[in-house]
Amino acid sequence: MEEKEFLNEVELNQLKSFVEENFNLIYKFINNEILKDVGVMNYNYYIKLIDDMFVKQNDLKISKINLDSNLFPYYIFTQIFGKGKMDYTSLRTETINLQKLNKQISVYYNYARFSLKDDFLYIDLMQTKIGGMPIDEDIVKVTKKIEIKSKGLEEFINKNKTN
Rank of each mutant, 00 (worst) to 15 (best):
M1D: 07
E3A: 13
E3P: 05
K4N: 12
K4R: 13
E5K: 15
F6R: 01
F6S: 04
E9A: 14
E9K: 15
V10N: 13
E11P: 04
N13D: 12
L15P: 00
S17A: 14
F18P: 01
F23D: 05
I26L: 08
F29S: 00
F29W: 01
N32D: 15
I34C: 00
I34F: 04
D37T: 07
D37Q: 14
N42L: 06
I47H: 10
I47A: 08
D51A: 09
M53W: 04
K56H: 14
Q57K: 15
Q57G: 06
D59R: 09
L60M: 08
K61Y: 11
K64Y: 05
I65A: 06
D68K: 13
S69K: 12
L71F: 06
F72Q: 04
P73K: 01
P73E: 05
I76H: 00
T78K: 02
K85W: 01
D87M: 13
S90C: 13
L91M: 15
T93E: 13
T93M: 11
I96R: 04
N97K: 08
L98V: 04
Q99Y: 14
K100R: 09
K100Q: 05
K103H: 11
V107D: 06
Y109T: 02
Y109P: 01
K117H: 10
F120N: 08
F120S: 03
F120P: 03
Y122L: 10
D124C: 06
M126G: 02
M126H: 00
T128Y: 11
G131Y: 13
G131T: 12
G131A: 15
P134W: 04
D136R: 09
D136K: 13
E137P: 01
E137W: 05
E137R: 07
V142N: 09
T143C: 11
T143S: 14
K144H: 11
K144M: 11
K145D: 10
K145T: 09
I146C: 03
K149G: 07
G152W: 02
L153Y: 02
F156M: 05
I157T: 01
N158P: 06
K159E: 14
N160G: 07
K161V: 01
T162K: 15
N163S: 11
